[in-house]
Design a protein around this nucleic acid. Sequence first.
DNA 1: GAAGATTGAGGCTTCAATCTTA
DNA 2: TAAGATTGAAGCCTCAATCTTC
Lengths: 177, 177
Amino acid sequence: MTESAPRPLDESESRAWTSLIAVAELLPGVLDSQLQRDAGLSHFEYMLLGALRDAPNETLRMTALAARTNATLPRLSHVASRLERRGLIARRPCPEDGRATNASLTEAGGAALDAAVPGHLATVRSQVLDTISPEQLEQLAGAAEAILGRIDPFGRFGTACPSTSALAQPDEQAEAS
Amino acid sequence: MTESAPRPLDESESRAWTSLIAVAELLPGVLDSQLQRDAGLSHFEYMLLGALRDAPNETLRMTALAARTNATLPRLSHVASRLERRGLIARRPCPEDGRATNASLTEAGGAALDAAVPGHLATVRSQVLDTISPEQLEQLAGAAEAILGRIDPFGRFGTACPSTSALAQPDEQAEAS
DNA sequence: GAAGATTGAGGCTTCAATCTTA
DNA sequence: TAAGATTGAAGCCTCAATCTTC
């Protein structure tokens, strides 16, 4: 009846699994708290705005945006409604396909993203990247990519990952003051 | 006004961050889906039951249970209400401290956990552990523990992590068939 | 007054159903 | 009929307020 019982985790596996699942459970909360407090954005909203910024003409079809932010279409649609109500994005029917909708970053949306980037970047550094050595950074990337190959076989998530791209060019507004 | 802008991520950092955040976003959904489908439990409920199983007398104060499952007290209280309604746990006032509440695993709760473990273990193996080499496993543990040291300074989460402990001794019901 | 815990309201995500266009 | 997207209901989490006991 029960499928042949998989063998239990050995000590090494147990350590790795425990710490990985802890990070996975804790990290989203850390990011959400900081962004919400300092910029009034959830981490998902932040990634969404970042994905639009990275897109040609700062515009993306809803389906493409959902793939890049790893969201279901209903989830994206709801969040997009809120962001549109706040004036941070705009939605227009796609000229080429009557079924599709294009979402684009507004000026206010771009400004909100610019304002959020430095604080988020500081958090990512202090809470994650700066806690491990350069070697560990490489090792972490390797392991995470391997796991992703399994749980995200189509590699949708990594595609021009918005938060990363946004983080990679936050200098623009830094010299304004 | 803006704090001095942190420097952007270099390529190595960007890779690590992108993949890590992707895993953190995707993994909980993978675990929840499998457990919900095969055992009617969320991953959080699974961890909660596992924490009780590992506790002396399969009983824990709500505060202690919250710490071990990394939950806020309100969250735990809501989930506990549902689990109690389903007969999987029981709550009784603590004899030693009138303010406290003890939660304990019921027989049905233990059975539900037993039934859930093999499938969960198989998922953990196939989706995560088996996708990386033994070396990467060690490296992943090291990096994740370092990050945890920062985002979970009190180490609450790791304390007798339920899912791990449960996974470490699932043989009991395996030989019954 | 502080600690342990519960409750209720509000917000977000999920799921199924729906609508429109290709 | 399928693809793209939206909507509404239901469930879960968060936050603030509350209640009881120390």
